[in-house]
């Protein structure tokens, strides 16, 4: 019985193991119609969809940012120096993420894990900063239900915070899985995928930081 029959002049189709989440147990890259791996394509599509999610939330915020009734408004509560630092920390984490992807491509497990953990820590720091910011705002009289401004602000930045948190969980899990050698296939691609997500979350934050914090000030 013949092994995989390759038709004349044609690449072998993706005939085995259409894996989710990069668990390629067969080794060897898949041949896809576009040459782009399924996982990466799916991640791009997902991020495209996420753009509209944040687009909707940002639009809501832009519509409502001036409507704070008698409650505190953006000019009163925002602490621009702090948020600038936290934005910078998040941007730094993008840098460490790039280094993680580089290490993964060089098949350097040790540094991959190191950079992943550094990225995760910076991300956790950002989330911590957001928790601090929310707590402070709340105590300054800006509750979730106070005004349209507050509801849309907390929803927008909260959604972003949840995305960062999920990203941190992914990074930690990835570092752990690499450590246990559970990824037998193309590690670099998995790291790259998480990296794509992480960069996306950072870019969204740059947009939010600009539109929410900087422009009204």
């Amino acid at each position: 019985m013949a092994d995989i029959t390759i038709h004349e002049g044609a690449a072998a189709p993706a005939d085995h193991g259409h894996d989710d989440h990069g668990h390629d147990d067969h080794g060897g890259a898949h041949v896809t119609s576009t040459g782009l791996s399924n996982n990466k394509l799916a991640m791009w599509l997902f991020l495209g969809s996420e753009c509209l999610l944040f687009g909707g939330l940002i639009s809501t915020y832009m519509l409502y940012r001036g409507r704070h009734g008698g409650g505190p408004g953006p000019a009163q509560v925002f602490d621009i120096p702090l948020t600038s630092v936290s934005s910078f920390v998040l941007l730094m984490s993008s840098l460490t993420m790039v280094l993680a992807v580089n290490s993964a491509k060089r098949l350097d497990d040790r540094n991959t894990r190191l950079w992943l953990m550094a990225t995760a820590l910076l991300g956790a720091l950002f989330v911590g900063g957001q928790v601090y910011e929310f707590t402070a705002f709340y105590q300054e009289g800006l509750g979730f239900t106070t005004s349209l401004f507050s509801s849309s602000f907390f929803t927008l930045t909260g959604f972003h915070g949840v995305h960062v948190t999920l990203g941190v969980v992914m990074l930690i899990a990835l570092a752990a899985i690499i450590g246990r050698g559970r990824i037998s296939g193309d590690k670099a691609e998995v790291v790259e995928m998480v990296g794509l997500y992480w960069h996306f979350v950072d870019v969204v934050w740059v947009v939010i930081f600009t539109l929410v914090y900087l422009i009204p000030a």
Partner: peptide, 30 residues
Amino acid sequence: LFAMPVITVALFLLSFQRNFGAAFFDVEKG
């Protein structure tokens, strides 16, 4: 792919309003 996130946002706003008291559609708050 592109339409679903928009309704997701709308539904989130509505459920935050209904279940957690957010102000998104509260006319009295503007």
